[in-house]
Amino acid sequence: MSGKAYLIGAGPGRPDLITVRGLNLLRQADVVLYDWLVAPQLVDQARPNAVRIFVGKAHDRHTLEQDTITDLLVEYVRAGHHVARLKGGDPSVFGHVGEEAQALASAGLAFEIVPGVSSALAAPAYAGIPVTSRGYSTAFAVVTGHEAPGKADSTTDWNALAHIPTLIVLMGLHRVDLVCTTLIAAGRAASTPAAVISRATTREQRVVRATLADLPAALREANLPTPAILVIGEVVGLGATLEWFVPSLVEEGFEAFERLEQRTI
Rank of each mutant, 00 (worst) to 15 (best):
E221A: 15
V114R: 00
L23A: 06
P91D: 00
T192C: 15
I184Y: 10
T166S: 03
S248N: 13
T202C: 00
V235S: 04
E261R: 10
T68Y: 15
I8L: 04
K151G: 12
Q41R: 11
A107T: 12
A213S: 11
L23Y: 02
F254C: 15
P165F: 12
D35E: 13
A218H: 14
S191R: 09
T181V: 05
S119E: 02
A141C: 03
R27M: 14
A222M: 11
H174L: 07
G80S: 08
G88W: 12
R21M: 04
V169D: 03
H163Q: 12
S133C: 06
S92D: 03
D67S: 11
A210Q: 09
Q41S: 13
D214S: 14
L86Y: 06
G80A: 03
G116E: 00
M171E: 10
P227I: 08
L212C: 04
N223A: 15
L161C: 12
D157H: 13
A148H: 15
E258G: 05
G9Y: 01
S2L: 04
E234G: 03
G88D: 00
Y76P: 05
R85C: 06
A110H: 13
L161H: 09
S198G: 05
T156A: 11
A107R: 03
S137K: 13
M171F: 12
V196T: 04
A186K: 15
S92W: 00
L170G: 04
D90S: 05
G13T: 04
H146E: 02
G239S: 14
S119P: 01
R85E: 10
A50Q: 11
S92A: 13
G128N: 10
G3C: 10
L224D: 03
H81I: 00
A195F: 11
Q262V: 15
P247S: 09
A200I: 01
A148M: 05
A218K: 04
A141W: 08
R14A: 02
Q45P: 05
V38C: 06
H146R: 06
S119H: 00
L17C: 02
L183Q: 13
V93R: 02
A50K: 05
V179D: 14
V246W: 00
A110V: 01
T201C: 08
V83K: 01
A125Q: 10
I229A: 01
A240P: 02
Q262C: 00
G135D: 08
L215N: 02
I69M: 00
A141H: 08
N24H: 10
S137V: 14
G253S: 14
G187V: 15
G145T: 09
S133I: 03
T201D: 00
R206P: 02
I168L: 14
E221C: 06
P149L: 12
G150V: 07
E204I: 03
A105M: 04
M1P: 14
V51N: 02
P225E: 13
T138F: 13
